[in-house]
Deep mutational scan, measured.
Amino acid sequence: MSIQHFRVALIPFFAAFCLPVFAHPETLVKVKDAEDQLGARVGYIELDLNSGKILESFRPEERFPMMSTFKVLLCGAVLSRVDAGQEQLGRRIHYSQNDLVEYSPVTEKHLTDGMTVRELCSAAITMSDNTAANLLLTTIGGPKELTAFLHNMGDHVTRLDRWEPELNEAIPNDERDTTMPAAMATTLRKLLTGELLTLASRQQLIDWMEADKVAGPLLRSALPAGWFIADKSGAGERGSRGIIAALGPDGKPSRIVVIYTTGSQATMDERNRQIAEIGASLIKHW
């Protein structure tokens, strides 16, 4: 067993022997301040990774656009098919120029040779490549099948209805392509620590998230040296922004954090800054 596999296998073990965790309302004060600064709703939840206990939450059962955070769930569904012998990570998928959609920095470079399922998941999570996500959605049967996968996990809230990039439209009061912070946090925890996926697939999923290259201005910008984070960000229309993450000190994750916002007129930089400040408060009061 590799060191990384050992780390993920012992996530519940280490967490069980940690000192009790206590909620700190100071972080919620910052979440509410972010709402004021952005002029928009902000949803927040913080779960203990081992027990699933909610440590703090704000608007945990209000719907927010998922945006690209759905790509972690998508690759979880792909990995479940791999575990069941219905898919192979090494299978190569070929596609054409007509398949390319807006923001496809990886797939646009491989029109000639195609990409493997493993490479597509890596591109979808680490670079948020939209064509990679659409190609992977095709392998599982489309958005409705991802929703069905989530329902089978016990998540009857999260739903995907459309493809990239239309799913980022974020129309107010439109339930399409949305989740709730509580539902997303619980589902992410199941994917990373539950028995739904094999140990190898859980490790692969967290490795992809740990290698995320496009979430630097968010929670990662607030992390002290030595902290662990595996995350996936999302951005959408109407001032929408979000991030889902597993993080913790001492090089291992111990909490799940989900943050979503929508309806702001603020710039992307300002949305990023507010999420980073929430992260800084979380870490300060850990």
Rank of each mutant, 00 (worst) to 15 (best):
Thr139Asn: 10
Asp161Thr: 06
Thr69Phe: 01
Glu61Trp: 12
Ser104Pro: 02
Ala215Arg: 04
Leu282Tyr: 03
Gly263His: 07
Pro12Glu: 06
Phe149Met: 11
Lys144Gln: 14
Ser57Phe: 09
Arg162Leu: 05
Gly236Tyr: 01
Val117Arg: 01
His285Cys: 11
Ala200Gln: 15
Asp231Met: 04
Lys144Asp: 14
Glu210Pro: 00
Gly114Glu: 04
Ala23Pro: 08
Pro253Thr: 08
Leu79Ser: 03
Glu145Trp: 09
Phe149Glu: 07
Arg273Thr: 12
Leu79Phe: 04
Val42Asp: 00
Glu56Trp: 05
Ala40Tyr: 03
Gln204His: 11
Thr187Met: 08
Leu197Glu: 04
Glu87Asp: 09
Leu47Ile: 14
Val257Asp: 00
Gln88Phe: 13
Ser264Arg: 05
Val31Glu: 01
Gln204Asp: 09
Asp177Asn: 04
Ala200Arg: 14
Leu55Asn: 07
Leu136Asn: 01
Thr116Arg: 06
Arg189Ser: 13
Leu219Arg: 03
Asp174Thr: 05
Ala222Lys: 15
Gln88His: 15
Leu282Trp: 02
Leu89Arg: 03
Leu191Glu: 03
Arg159Ala: 06
Ser128Ala: 00
Pro224Cys: 05
Ser240Met: 03
Trp208Asn: 03
Ser96Tyr: 11
Gly52Lys: 06
Val117Tyr: 03
Asn272Glu: 06
Gly251Arg: 11
Leu28Val: 11
Asn173Gln: 15
Arg162Phe: 03
Asn152Val: 10
Gly114Cys: 04
Ser104Trp: 01
Asp33Asn: 15
Gln204Val: 11
Arg91Ala: 07
Val72Gly: 03
Asp207Pro: 02
Leu111Gln: 09
Lys284Val: 10
Pro20Asn: 14
Ser96Ala: 13
Gln265Gly: 13
Ile275Met: 11
Ala245Arg: 00
Ile93Asn: 03
Asp83Thr: 05
Thr187Lys: 01
Leu38Pro: 07
Ala225Ile: 14
Arg176Phe: 09
Val78Pro: 00
Asp212Pro: 05
Phe64Val: 04
Met1Gln: 01
Ala182Ile: 15
Ala124Arg: 00
Asp155Pro: 01
Val214Leu: 07
Asn98Thr: 15
Leu219Pro: 04
Ser281Met: 11
Met209Arg: 00
Gly239Ser: 04
Ile11Thr: 08
Thr112Ser: 13
Ser233Gln: 01
Lys284Ile: 11
Lys213His: 12
Thr131Gln: 03
Tyr103His: 08
Thr112Cys: 12
Arg92Pro: 08
Asp269Arg: 11
Val31Gly: 02
Cys18Trp: 12
Leu47Phe: 07
Arg41Asp: 07
Val29Gln: 14
Thr69Asp: 00
Ala280Gln: 15
Asp99Met: 12
Leu160Ser: 11
Gln203Ser: 13
Ile229Met: 08
Met115Pro: 01
Leu218Ser: 03
Glu195Gly: 14
Met115Val: 06
Ala16Asp: 03
Arg162Cys: 07
Asp269Ile: 13
Leu199Pro: 15
Ala245Met: 04
Ala280Met: 15
Leu120Ile: 06
Ser122His: 12
Leu28Arg: 08
Met153Ala: 14
Ala170Ser: 12
Gly43Met: 00
Ile45Phe: 12
Gly226Glu: 10
Glu237Gly: 14
Thr116Lys: 06
Ser240Pro: 01
Arg176Asn: 08
Arg59Gln: 06
Met66Leu: 12
Leu196His: 15
Ala9Asp: 05
Thr261Ala: 09
Lys71Ile: 00
Gly236Thr: 05
Asp231Gly: 04
Ala170Gln: 07
Ser254Met: 14
Leu282Ile: 13
Gly234Glu: 01
Gln86Ala: 13
Ser2Phe: 11
Ala133Asn: 02
Ile229Asp: 01
Thr126Ser: 12
Phe228Cys: 07
Leu160Glu: 02
Leu49Asn: 04
Met127Pro: 01
Ile278Leu: 08
Asp161Val: 07
Glu237Lys: 13
Glu35Lys: 03
Glu210Val: 14
Val157Leu: 10
Met1Thr: 01
Met153Leu: 14
Val72Cys: 07
Ser254Lys: 14
Gly242Met: 02
Asn98Ala: 15
Ala276Asn: 09
Met153Asn: 10
Leu160Pro: 04
Ile244Thr: 06
Ala230Tyr: 03
Ile125Trp: 00
Pro143Gln: 06
Phe70Arg: 02
Glu61His: 14
Thr186Arg: 14
Glu108Arg: 11
Cys75Ile: 07
Ala40Gly: 13
Lys190Gln: 12
Ala148Glu: 15
Ala230Trp: 03
Gly251Trp: 07
Gly263Ala: 08
Lys190Trp: 09
Pro249Glu: 08
Ala280Thr: 11
His24Ser: 12
Ser80Tyr: 14
Gly234Asn: 01
Lys109Arg: 14
Asp36Ile: 15
Lys30Phe: 07
Lys30Trp: 05
Asn272Tyr: 02
Met66Arg: 00
Thr179Ile: 01
Ser233Phe: 01
Thr267Cys: 10
Ser122Thr: 12
Gln88Met: 11
Leu111Gly: 06
Lys190Asp: 15
Phe149Cys: 06
Asp161Lys: 03
Ala9Phe: 12
Asp113His: 11
Ala230Gly: 12
Ala40Met: 09
Asn98Phe: 15
Trp286Asp: 02
Ile171Leu: 15
Ala215Leu: 02
Ala211Ser: 13
Phe149Trp: 14
Val157Gly: 10
Ala266Trp: 06
Ile243His: 02
His156Asn: 14
Val42Phe: 14
Ile275Gly: 01
Gly76Asn: 01
Leu150Asp: 01
Leu120Cys: 06
Pro25Glu: 12
Leu188Cys: 09
Ser2Glu: 05
Asn134Asp: 06
Asp174Tyr: 03
Gly239Ile: 00
Glu62Gln: 08
Thr131Tyr: 05
Leu10Gln: 06
Leu282Ser: 06
Gly43Ser: 06
Val157Ala: 13
Lys32His: 12
Phe64Asp: 00
Leu150Thr: 08
Lys232Ile: 00
Glu35His: 02
Ala266Lys: 13
Ser201Trp: 03
Pro60Leu: 10
Leu191Gln: 04
Asn50Ile: 10
Asn168Trp: 03
Gly39Cys: 10
Asn272Met: 03
Thr147Leu: 07
Thr69Lys: 01
His24Asn: 15
Met153Gly: 08
Met268Pro: 07
Arg81Val: 06
Gly226Ile: 03
Ile171Ser: 14
Ser128Arg: 00
Glu164Ala: 00
Gly226Ala: 09
Ala225Phe: 10
Phe6Trp: 08
Asp33Gln: 15
Arg63Gly: 04
Ala235His: 02
Gln204Pro: 02
Met153Tyr: 08
Gln4Ser: 14
Val82Gly: 05
Ser264Pro: 03
Ser281Val: 15
Ala185Arg: 00
Glu56Ile: 05
Thr193Arg: 15
Asp36Lys: 15
Ile125Pro: 00
Gly263Thr: 05
Arg220Gly: 04
Ala225Ser: 13
Ala40Ser: 10
Glu277Ala: 11
Gly52His: 06
Asp177Gly: 03
Val101Gly: 07
Glu62Tyr: 08
Arg81Ile: 06
Gly248Tyr: 01
Pro65Asp: 01
Thr126Ile: 09
Gln86Asp: 13
Leu167Trp: 01
Leu247Ile: 11
Arg273Ala: 10
Gly76Tyr: 05
Ala183Asn: 09
Gly141Tyr: 05
Gly242Tyr: 00
Gln97Glu: 15
His156Trp: 11
Leu74Pro: 01
Pro12Ile: 13
Pro181Trp: 00
Glu210Ser: 10
Arg118Tyr: 15
Leu150Arg: 00
Asp129Pro: 00
Trp163Phe: 14
Thr198Cys: 10
Leu79Asn: 02
Gly85Phe: 06
Leu196Phe: 12
Asn134Ile: 04
Ser221Gly: 10
Ser264Phe: 04
Thr131Leu: 06
Thr69His: 07
Ile3Asp: 08
Lys252His: 13
Lys30Leu: 11
Ala280Asn: 13
Ser281Trp: 07
Glu102Leu: 12
Leu219Tyr: 03
Gly236Trp: 01
Pro249Met: 08
Thr27Ser: 07
Leu135Lys: 05
His151Tyr: 14
Asn152Thr: 14
Asp33Ser: 14
Gly114Lys: 04
Ile171Cys: 14
Glu119Arg: 05
Asp33Lys: 15
Ile140Arg: 02
Ala246Gln: 05
Met209Val: 01
Pro249Thr: 07
Ala124Val: 08
Leu160Asn: 07
Gly194Cys: 11
Thr261Gln: 07
Val106Glu: 14
Pro181Phe: 00
Ala132Gly: 05
Phe64Ser: 01
Met67Lys: 01
Thr186Trp: 15
Leu19Trp: 15
Ala245Lys: 00
Asn173Gly: 14
Glu164Val: 00
Gly52Tyr: 05
Thr261Tyr: 06
Tyr260Lys: 00
Ile140Pro: 00
Asn130Ile: 01
Gln88Tyr: 13
Leu218Ile: 05
Lys144Glu: 15
His24Trp: 09
Asn50Pro: 15
Ile275Asp: 00
Ser281Pro: 03
Thr116Met: 06
Ala77Met: 11
Ile11Tyr: 11
Thr193Met: 14
Arg273Lys: 15
Asp269His: 12
Lys144Arg: 14
Ala246Lys: 03
Pro12Lys: 08
Arg220Met: 03
Gly142Met: 02
Arg118Ala: 15
Ala77Gly: 08
Ser233Asn: 01
Thr69Val: 03
Ile275His: 01
Arg202Gly: 07
Ile93Asp: 02
Ala34Gly: 07
Asp177Arg: 01
